[in-house]
Design a protein around this nucleic acid. Sequence first.
DNA 1: GACCCGATTGTCT
DNA 2: GACAATCGGGTCA
Length: 267
Amino acid sequence: MGQKKQRLAEAEGQQNPPDTAQTSSPKEPRLGTLSTLGLQRSIYFSSPKDHPVRLGPEFFDQPAVPLARAFLGQVLVRRLADGTELRGRIVETEAYLGPEDEAAHSRGGRQTPRNRGMFMKPGTLYVYIIYGMYFCMNVSSQGNGACVLLRALEPLGGLEIMRQLRRTLRKGTVSRALKDRELCSGPSKLCQALAIDKSFDQRDLAQDEAIWLEPGPLGPSGLAVVAAARVGIGQAGEWVQKPLRFYIRGSPWVSVMDKVAEQDTQA
DNA sequence: GACCCGATTGTCT
DNA sequence: GACAATCGGGTCA
């Protein structure tokens, strides 16, 4: 319990980050991340003319579980029509394994117009509508019908824009200002905050001009990662319990913490 | 067509 | 913690 308060306190302390919509923190030099990641630039990074560093197709070409882990710590960037860049560090993901995974939309090999993105090349976005009013964003991985759901971000830049987007897209009328921790702490919240809708379905995260992934200051290595059961999958038999949700331990930005899983992962 | 359900969120108690 | 909101997509007749 005190632990939670401490996390909250830490979060508040980390808040007020300069709301630098277009720049990354000077304390977090991007150089060095490549070696931290243990990746080779020539393989994992491409450098389109206007993006100095973005994760290329090879990054996404791995099975869902390692890809879900690899996403942690990386920075999702969304460029709006006016050029504003919104940034968030990925802190929580879920892996969906494909036909054999009873909780996946591709279970049993089902392929429909809606979930086509799941079967497209790794890095393809699969954005769908849930509960008639929210969006969820997945990224196709290696493996037919397998993908990774992005569940939560630590907002890094463009917080005020995110707040506006969340405010205007939320139902209801006049509402209080959202705290930073409420901006991207859920799969549909992050879609709202980054203005991601159905029009992003089947786009290529490795190529698109409006959305891409940059290597994070820390990358996934060196992070303590918790593996927990996925959220919100009711009837999927044994698949309900499988530890296919991954989040950064201690991060106050995740949507749901799982204390039991954290203890199990501790060892 | 008709019907049912959902990888969620926000509000109220 | 319980529950309503809201509608696209999947399934079945």
